[in-house]
Every structure is written in C-alpha cells, then in structure tokens.
Amino acid sequence: MLKTSTTDAIPDKKVNATHRHSFRLNAKDKYYAAVFLGPSLLVLGLFVFYPMLKTLYISLFLTNTLGNTTVYVGLGNYVNLISSPDFISSLFVTLFYVFAVTFFTVALGLLLANLASQKLPGIAIFRTLYSVTMGVSVAVAAIFWLFIFNPSTGFFALMSSWFNLPVMNWLTNPTSAMWAVIITTVWMNLGFTFLILLGAIQSVPNTLYEAADVEGASSNFQFFHITIPMISPTLFFVSTITIIGSFKSFGLIDMITKGGPTNATNMLVYRIYKDAFYSGNYSKSSAEAIILTVIIAFFTLLQFKFLEKKVNY
C-alpha cells in the first residue's frame, strides 16, 4: 500500500514538470499549431479582425464619398457624435428598445415555458406552437406584422372597430412605432427563448418539487424558490443573447419603420448603415460602429461577471 502511494506521488511531480516544459514549443509543435490554427485565423482575420481594425482606423479620419481616408482628425468623429443630440437620442432609443425587448422576451418566454412544462394532455401541441417563430424569417415576420399593424385592413384596426375605439396608425406615431418594433422583435425572439427555457425547466429534477410538495410549499413558492433559482444560469444566458441580439437588430427595423417616424426607431445599427451607405459618411459611421462595439462588449463583460458570481451553484 505504502509503496503504491509513493510511486503515485512521484510521477505526479514529473507530470507537473513536463507540463511546464510543454509551453516551450519545439519546431514540430509550432508547425502543428500553425496548421490547426491557420484556417480559422485566416477566416476570422479576413472577415472579422481586419474589418474591425480598418473600422477603427477609418473612424480616426475624415473620408471622401468613396470611403477613402482624407484628413486625420484623431477622436474628432467621436467628439462630434457625443456632442450631437441626434446621436445621443439614437443611443437612448436603442437602450430603451434593447431593455424592453429583453424584458418582455424573457418574461413571456418564461411564462410560456412554465405553462408548457405542465403535464397536461395535448401540451405538445402548445410546445410546437410556441416555438414556431424560430422557423420564421425576418422578412416574413416583418410582412406579417405590417399586415397586422395596417390601419385600414390590419387586425388591430379590426379589433378597434369591434370595441368602437379610434383606429390607431401604429407606424406613424413615434411612440407606437417604437412599440410596434418591440412587439415584432419580441415575437421573433420568443420561439428560441421559450425553447431554451422549456429545456431548462424540464431538466429540474422532479424530486425537488416532490420534496417541496411534502414540505408544504405552494406552487407559487415553488416557482420562485425552486424553478427560478434552478434555471438562473439559463435565464442569464437568454438575457445576454437577447441583449446582444437586439443591439444588432437591423432587418425588422429596415422593413417595418426604416428608422422613422422622426428617428423614433433609429437604432444604432440602422444609423450606422444609413450614415455609411445613404449619406456616404464612412468615418462617422465607423466611429458609431466602434461605440456600439464598446457598448456590447461592456454588457457582455457585465453579464459574465454577474454570471460568475451570482448564478453558479
């Protein structure tokens, strides 16, 4: 017994020693490293890192209509943006949109997932229905909701006429246009969020609920004290995905409001696109893109920090 334990211990140290050495790569190792890293470095470099660095570079210059840099202005573009009320309002519009979308997506997804995780006959039908938006393309969703919002033939107009309410033109009023975009985005996101949360809820061991049943916990108590804490890692995952995703929302906005009316739904990404490809102001749009990247990086970092601390059990 003693002998085996000592022989166990010695190789352990040896392993550690060789492990330290292994970071000094020899020529052969370097060759293999290059071969394995090469393809992804090439693709990422070409389509991610180079454009990112180029964007950073352009944002420090003025550009002509062809996108070529002309005059170096340092942080001039950034200063202009931060002092422009137009950009600041766009920033707040984006933040409002992102948080409204995330809140409603996660809340509704959780509600539906909780409903669909009940053991009832025919519940599989609802599981399919609730997750169906995963298969709908942005374009189809936009057209679909444009029909619903249509003030003369839309479903909302029809409902208003049933209850003798004034017909609302959703897409021409700045406030309601924002909500129209939020509703559409939440609807689009819901399928994926629902499915992920449903999976999380269903993987909570049933004995936890049975133990709580025996101990006398009501179903509300069980939801807030078992389900929510048990699925908190997943809740944070879907929140992060939704936040990042809605910062990058473009398709729905382009098809439903085109950033209007009066810039009420002019989110950052849409603004970047218009500044670059409509106004030909490449340097300004590059600076905006860098600001957006920093904001998203910040939220991602925040989420990860939080995830590490709070959600791990």
């Binding site: 004995t207 936890l208 101990e215 078992i226 804490p229 048990m230 059990y313």
Partner: peptide, 13 residues
C-alpha cells in the same frame, strides 16, 4: 409527514 428521497432532493443553490 416528511419524506427523505433516495436522491436526497437537496436544493443545490
């Protein structure tokens, strides 16, 4: 009554 489960049913969090 109370019950002790085979898997203990402890709340991991």
């Amino acid at each position: 009554l109370t019950m002790v489960f085979q898997s203990y049913a402890l709340f991991p969090f």
